[in-house]
Amino acid sequence: MDSYDIIIVGGGPGGLTAGIYAGRQGTKNLILDKDLAGGIGREVPEMENYPGYENISGLKLTEIMKTQAEKNTEIHEFENVLNIEKNDDGFTVKTDKNEYLTKTVILATGSSHSHLNVPGEEEFLGRGVSYCATCDGLFFQSRDIIMVGGGNSALQEAIYLKNLGCNVTIVHRRDEFRAQKHLQNMVKAEGISVIYNATVEEIKGDMIVESVVLKDTKTEELSEMKTDGVFISVGYIPHTELAVQLGVNLDETGHIIVDKEQKTNVEYVYAIGDVCVGLKQWVVACGEGAVAATSAYHDIKQG
């Protein structure tokens, strides 16, 4: 059974950064990701707030980081971690392909898209319903679509879809956006239509999406709106199954609680990125990855 100093579960921005820092410290490390490295960060259409780049897509930045990380750590993509057990020498990490021993674990398990949980959402997934503008936007050029949500991701994707040539309308359940002001200004500048105080109650169609049922959150009046597609960006659900197995403490929202060194309440277990309490930003995850890898290194040396 292969043995490592640090195993990082998840190859998103935080996990890749942790791998870079861990490798440069001279430890033996492994990143395990159930999919492609980068996670949902690959779906970000463009970023204007990542230091060093005036504008870069999540996919492009992921590939740059992955290339750098591969010089410092092993990366196993499409290898899903099923279980992590504490043992006398550290931890046994069991995947769907192998088992590994490690002295420390960094949980960078990220999050997945929240769903609306309305009729038609699952039925029309891939047939007009999407959670990824960069994945599916090209299919909707010159067509009418709605973007559901009011945070940074929703507005970023709405702008991206508009620039692709889609006819975009944002549907938001409140009377104002939660997104950063510059994104709100860009939505106005692009002339993107917005329906405030509305929720999607049902997604309708025959073989593909044809319309949505909207409810006015103030009057509760229902109306039907024709659309060719529904893009959904209403938040994320942290992946904490492995954390729960290990007895890691979560907060009331289901996120992992860590200290300033990214340590959890379980010795030699650290957590970073969207699975943790805190600001959900690419640059934050990278910083946390650097801190966690350094903390793990020091703990190994002192232990």
Rank of each mutant, 00 (worst) to 15 (best):
S142Y: 12
A154G: 06
E157I: 10
V168Y: 00
N167I: 04
Y160F: 15
K162Y: 15
F139V: 11
L138K: 03
S153G: 13
G165E: 04
F139R: 13
G165T: 04
G137Q: 03
L155V: 08
N152G: 01
L164H: 13
L164N: 14
Y160I: 06
G149F: 00
G165V: 11
A154N: 01
N167Q: 14
D144K: 13
N167M: 01
L164R: 13
I145K: 12
F139H: 11
D136N: 07
Q156S: 06
N152Y: 01
D136R: 12
I159V: 00
G165D: 00
I159F: 05
D136M: 10
L138V: 04
Q141E: 13
G150V: 01
A158T: 14
N152C: 02
S142C: 11
S153R: 13
I170T: 04
G149V: 00
N152K: 00
L155E: 09
I146S: 02
S153W: 02
R143H: 11
T169H: 04
M147P: 09
T169W: 09
D144V: 11
L161D: 10
G150D: 06
Q156N: 02
K162P: 10
K162T: 15
A158N: 05
G151L: 13
S142W: 08
I146M: 11
L155I: 06
N167G: 13
R143F: 10
G149D: 04
G150N: 10
V148T: 13
F139E: 13
K162E: 15
V168Q: 07
G150I: 05
V168S: 09
A154V: 09
I145W: 13
A158G: 14
K162V: 10
F139Q: 09
E157K: 01
L138R: 02
C166M: 05
G150M: 08
F140D: 09
Y160E: 05
G150T: 05
I159P: 11
V148F: 00
V171M: 03
T169I: 04
I159E: 07
F140K: 05
L164K: 10
L164Q: 15
N163C: 01
D144W: 02
A154Y: 09
S142G: 09
A154D: 07
G137F: 02
I145R: 14
F139I: 12
S142E: 15
S153Q: 09
V168D: 02
D144C: 01
V148R: 07
L138S: 08
V148A: 14
I146A: 05
I170R: 08
F140W: 00
F140M: 07
Q156D: 10
L155R: 11
N163F: 05
M147H: 03
L138G: 12
K162Q: 15
V148S: 14
G151R: 02
S153V: 14
V168K: 05
Q156L: 00
L138M: 12
K162S: 15
F139G: 06
